[in-house]
Write a protein that binds this DNA or RNA. Structure first.
Lengths: 382, 382
DNA sequence: CTGAAAGCGCTTACAG
DNA sequence: CTGAAAGCGCTTACAG
């Protein structure tokens, strides 16, 4: 199974390596006979060009890198899927890099890990520091961003600010005035900008509706089910209860639904909930949410990248925006007037139409008093 | 921003390129002074070796490929995360390939896409045909498999057969005899073996409990929430209703829960449900399920790969197995005796008191040793 | 301990 | 339309 080289092919076809090279890439004038002879020889020998040699000779790697702070979370996995599709169809290789914490991040950007290794890189959701931007520029390859923007780099973003405003405005329009926010941690070390924009959208919507921004209506946690659950528990332990909750991601909204269910609050009768993403499980929960096409964003940015990498000329940086739209399902409704502002679930009047109770909520677990602790009974067999 | 080469470093340090090369990789005897001078020069110039030149000279690519039929599904994303971690820590690059359908698959294996491109490849969940195995062997690099086994390739698998048997035995122990299966499509074109093993485990458990395997108790669909939903709808439209359902994945189980909820069947009072995976949302739904550590499997196989790729000598193929354990939560309970076997949901008597189901406690199955089962108690810290 | 030289397998002006 | 030759940037026996 010795590796067959271009020389072997040349010899078999009775031509020079140069001719084989040109023929295989369809360059220059070639006599039809030679071409087919070469093609045959190459196939017969099972020849494929050595990427290493090709790269060394041409300086092009035929490879792009995708750098992400998470791999398994819904948004990131979907985005990766979209990027992969376009990149593969273009015949490029995709190198995956996970930059999970600030330490990895630092060592990642300081060492020129990508140097001479890729023709382009797409960064997902990473808010770059100035030194990081400088390091990236010194790579001398086009940089593409999703969910973040940097001068001189192409990007595709949704309008987080406006989308969040819309989501909260929906709650305002329904008549809510005690609208809580479940957001990402504003002080997390990776400095993601998405949560910042979504929070700003929330606050702006309140203000423009003549409502006041109240810190006790805001809680935060990681962008996960657990994060949404514990943030909601926090909200529910404060002095005034919200009639609606805007969660910055669907997974957080799922956690909120669970927490509400645990304390016996009904959705949407007692509390309305809006999420963000349109995660596949969102329709399961009948969750009202802001929908975005994540694989589409991946494809979009990858197409930019591909056309610039394959093209003869580096294309100028562009800023693309992806659409979002509010999907109204069954977790939002007009608030029910409550006689007792501090009332517990039991004290509330029954809602006229309980059939709007979202499926899956409230059926599988006995409601218990919320406490910070997770209740989890597990038993293992064997 | 001209690329700095080893010559530049050599010149600056006043030595030959050979010496720089040796010094940078810590080979041969080196005088301390030279080493530090070289190191300084390299840092000053921001030098990093050209991967292409390195690969061409050494024949090693420092790269591994991960080939997966899905990227975004939970199992695959988690596995990828585990592999990535180990691979990155070893300083290797990870090339991601998505082989989504039989067509991609064919063109993928026929063209030597991986040829000369990687030092090793991990295949996830792909049942290979003989020609595919041959193509892989001709790559002349070690091949690693997760969730599948091939003679001569290293692999890590869970025991799908035994795990499924255990899950169904749990239902049998609770007193169920009408146990349905929600499985993957046995005729899907990719020929995944996991669903086959899980189905066999289901059937074997029935048989060994003296129950008969009834086709009308089996339904299939894709390994998704939707798939589980529609498979359950199929089950519910047949002549006899099951009192328990074993779903081959948690996501399918979620779909089952939804379908049951839609028709007013209560879980676990009317129907018990067991899933497979211990997906993060499983605890959300209080789903009884077979837990597996997916990122751990990714790390395990990656460690094998790394040690063989980095090591001087190709290690022999090994077959590793990963543990599973049944996690009993609240979606399984003893069946309630029904007067009317063909009764509809509406026709059923209301369950006397759901509180007769002590949360978690009363639902434990008597752990019964399955044949050939590994005994292992796992406890979760944190 | 260190250099000069060959070689890894391609591509691409440069000639013809 | 096709070849010979140089060069891409490394590594590694081979000498010294």
């Amino acid at each position: 199974m010795a590796k067959t080289t271009i020389k072997d092919v040349a010899q078999l076809a009775g031509v020079s390596p140069s001719t084989v090279s040109r023929s295989l890439r369809g360059i220059g004038g070639l006599s039809a006979g030679t071409v087919s002879r070469i093609k045959e020889a190459a196939e017969h020998l099972g020849y494929s060009v050595s990427p290493a040699a090709y790269r060394l000779a041409t300086g092009r790697t035929g490879t792009i890198a995708v750098v992400m702070p998470y791999i398994t979370r819904w948004f990131f996995a979907e985005l990766l899927g979209g990027v992969e599709k376009v990149v593969r169809e273009a015949g490029l290789d995709l190198l995956l890099y996970h930059v999970g914490d600030t330490e990895m991040r630092q060592q990642y950007f300081s060492s020129g890990l990508l140097r001479k290794r890729v023709d382009g890189v797409v960064l997902v959701t990473l808010a770059l520091t100035d030194p990081e931007v400088a390091a990236l520029r010194s790579l001398d390859v086009p940089v593409y961003m999703v969910g973040a923007e940097v001068e001189g780099f192409s990007s595709v973003c949704i309008d987080d600010l406006d989308s969040s405003r819309t989501a909260v405005q929906h709650l305002v329009n329904l008549g809510h005035s005690d609208i809580a926010l479940i957001s990402g941690d504003p002080n997390e070390p990776m400095h993601f900008t998405v949560p910042l924009h979504r929070r700003r959208g929330y606050r702006e919507a309140l203000v423009s509706a003549g409502l006041t921004v109240r810190p006790e209506l805001e809680a935060h946690g990681p962008f996960t089910v657990e994060g949404g659950y514990s943030a909601t528990v926090k909200l529910l332990s404060r002095r005034s209860l919200p009639t609606a909750i805007f969660a910055e991601s669907d997974e957080m909204a799922f956690g909120a639904l669970k927490a509400l269910d645990r304390v016996g609050l009904r959705v949407p009768e007692d509390v309305s909930v809006v999420g963000f993403d349109d995660h596949p499980m969102a329709s399961y929960f009948e969750l009202t949410t802001v929908a975005q096409d994540v694989p589409g964003q991946g494809r979009l940015i990858a197409e930019q990248l591909v056309s610039s990498v394959m093209g003869p000329e580096g294309a100028p940086a562009v800023r693309l925006s992806a659409q979002t739209h509010l999907v109204v399902r069954q977790t939002t409704a007009a608030p029910v007037r409550r006689p007792d502002k501090h009332g517990t679930a039991e004290g509330r009047p029954a809602h006229p139409s309980p059939s709007t109770l979202p499926p899956g909520v409230g059926t599988h677990s006995a409601p218990r008093p919320a406490s910070g602790a997770r209740q989890r009974k597990e038993s293992r067999s064997k």
